[in-house]
């Protein structure tokens, strides 16, 4: 049962002190699928992602990734299989490392040979010209930084990519570019995505299935087709959908 899922989460609970931020959450993602998690700020969606990535260790429940039960402390094999792209490209790149340093580091950690070629390839895949290779983050724009972050996540050739609002810190004109890049990469490399976002339009564009979260609980799981048809079952999902269409002038 667990082997056919890329990721499966059973009864996940996360608490920070007194506040119970994720409550009995369960979902499963098939290999090659793109799965969205949507919700307002504070709904616990980013926390779920950090648990999956192994960055948050205070949780209970069962997390299986690629058919393997995951302990709180992940092993090196996990990090080669799953990587994450952070929300804010201004905070996710080390300010004193060039693009080259940033991409070389994961390869050095895992003792991957042929780093030169791998770095060039990763840069090419995310559409960064080679002339950017020895630039520092402060010499890059937001969109370029996010491309570097994506390249860093891909350089180890993982099968799962965890995306934490990968475009919400970017300019609207850049957002589409980065989303299309992520789409193309997924098809090319048969990646499994989990995309966390508060933006229903982004999730509708990127994902085949999505989960709506509220107050740490999964409210409704639906397909992109349901979303496109504006036919969610629950009141909260309906409300979220209405809200995402923007405000209407009263009267």
């Amino acid at each position: 049962m667990t082997t056919q899922h890329a990721i499966s989460v059973e009864k996940l609970n996360v608490s920070f002190g007194d506040s119970h931020v994720v409550k009995d959450l369960s979902f499963a993602v098939a290999p090659g699928e793109s799965y969205g998690i949507v919700g307002e700020s504070g709904s616990g969606k980013s926390t779920v992602l950090r648990v999956l990535a192994g960055l948050n260790r205070d949780w209970s429940g069962e997390v299986d990734i690629l058919g393997k039960r995951q302990p709180k402390l992940r092993d090196k094999a996990f990090y080669r299989a799953a990587q994450m792209v952070f929300q804010d490209p201004y905070g996710s790149l080390h300010p004193k490392k060039t693009v080259d340093d940033t991409l070389a580091e994961p390869l050095a950690i895992h003792g991957v040979r042929d780093a030169e070629a791998k770095i060039s390839r990763a840069m090419q895949d995310v559409g960064l010209p080679t002339s950017f290779r020895f630039r520092y983050p402060h010499q890059l724009s937001g969109g370029q930084r996010q491309r570097v972050a994506i390249a860093r996540a891909l350089v180890l050739e993982p099968t799962i990519l965890l995306l934490d609002e990968p475009t919400s810190a970017l300019d609207v004109s850049i957002q589409a570019e980065v989303l299309n890049l992520l789409q193309a990469l997924r098809h090319e490399r048969k990646l499994t995505y989990i995309l966390v976002s508060h933006d229903l339009a982004v999730v509708g564009h990127m994902c085949e299935r999505l989960l709506v979260m509220q107050f740490g609980r999964g409210v409704e799981e639906m397909t992109a087709a349901t979303l496109a048809a504006r036919a969610p079952q629950t009141a909260y999902a309906q409300q979220l959908l209405t809200a995402s269409e923007g405000f209407r002038r009263a009267g």
Binding site: S92, H94, P106, H110
Partner: peptide, 26 residues
Amino acid sequence: NADYISAMRLQGASQMRIVLKHIVPM
């Protein structure tokens, strides 16, 4: 707690490596 240190942790870097190669230079 910066994202770029989380990113290093996510790449499987050891504590030693994170402190010496990524925190110390800052």
